[in-house]
Nucleic acid binder design. Structure first.
Lengths: 214, 214
DNA sequence: CGTGAGCTTGAGCTCGATCAAAGAGTGTGG
DNA sequence: CCACACTCTTTGATCGAGCTCAAGCTCACG
């Protein structure tokens, strides 16, 4: 049985179709440009806008009192972020590399909430998927799951670039950079992946990677 | 490079008000009764309905191929669950104790999606909150966070009953039952909580518990 | 070609998992 | 009402995955 309220969406790959209502509004906005590491919004700040990545990437994260950081989600081209119900931000968002963002104010969103429902549901779904990874997977399984996720979001290619440094991967997966590095080395040694430079990844044995994710 | 200034969000919708449309439909439905452990929906199943807890409680979980289980969320009285974008379930839902559920078909939801937006946003928000706990907190910090969450959801009282067994707490927090038990014992020894029987909890030192959560 | 940030590798340690057993709580039947 | 049985929980002992601390190494950049 289909969800009749909106068109079906393929994972997070194709948000363009499902948000056509929102697109009409956001497309008329100018692109705001951000440099690497630049803040888009901040924990504790009043929430005023909803955002869409036009180019580049964004990390959304929280920092605990003791300095430990958890990256809640990465957002790539076409992804919406910053959607929330509360008045104040409970996380921060930063550009990864040179990044372009379009935004609409929350006041405008009342006209397009319906169009954004699938977007929120997808974000929710991927948050739950991620709970499973960080709750019940070993280090190597987390890294394998991460590589598959990035491969998917890069369009399903087996050769792609990671757009974030190791520390971001570690903070996304709930690990340390050393453990991430060791896991990547292990996957390389097992001829499951190939590494090119510090960001390039090629999945050689896709099946083996999937098996690791349970 | 600067984002336009954040505008204050005026007249933020109250979740109770905005779900009134949904409430109107679901209130006319009969309550379905479930016994302890009974399945409400199943991983892989075609998704047909959205649910609301009338009494009792529900656990939503995923099981990995190797048998490891992760509880994604607990749902208490008044909570909606089962909202998703995909056609098929990616998790299972079970009653905890005697539980009453009202449901509406997804076909009906087209009339109330807009009303359910805050519900989805809240579920999304709590999923992210939980990512932080299982990604970057130690065992005792996770258990402390869990007790505070349950206290809040029980209405902010410091004396309440846990409605789930230790194994559910463990699978929610990404720990083992032994570790959960040890953490509870430690909190008891530190006079931060008091335990009554196997389910009863009283928070004696609320501040100390909050400090543990960072 | 030099420099520094980011990444990898190594050694040792710690927290939580695992394995094992005892204790508490609940329900059933004599 | 108590004895038994069963499940759930607690406690103990040991082990190992991943963290921490500490060097080296790479690579992108000037």
């Amino acid at each position: 049985m289909n969800m009749p309220a909106f068109e079906p969406s393929q994972g997070r790959m194709n948000p363009v179709l499902v948000t056509s209502a929102a697109l009409g509004i956001v497309d008329s906005k100018p692109i705001s440009n951000f440099v690497d590491g630049q803040n888009i919004y901040c924990d504790g700040e009043r929430a005023g806008q909803v955002y869409r990545v036009e180019f580049g990437a964004v990390r959304v994260y929280r920092v605990l009192a003791n300095g430990r950081r958890q990256i809640l989600d990465f957002h790539l081209v076409g992804n919406w972020f910053g959607l929330q119900n509360e008045d104040f931000r409970r996380s921060s968002a930063e550009a990864i590399g040179a990044t372009g963002i379009k935004s609409i104010s929350l006041q405008e969103t009342r006209f397009i909430w319906q169009g954004l429902v699938p977007v929120v549901l997808e974000n929710y779904s991927s948050a739950q998927e991620h709970q499973l990874v960080i709750g019940r997977q070993s280090a190597i399984e987390r890294v394998a799951a991460f590589l598959l996720e990035m491969s998917n979001r890069a369009g399903g290619t087996c050769k792609f670039d990671l757009f974030m440094p190791r520390i971001d991967i570690a903070d996304y997966l709930g690990l340390t950079i050393e453990t991430v590095s060791r896991a990547l080395t292990k996957l390389k040694s097992g001829s499951i992946i190939r590494l090119q430079g510090t960001r390039g990844v090629e999945i050689v044995n896709y099946r083996a990677l999937q098996n690791l994710c349970q």
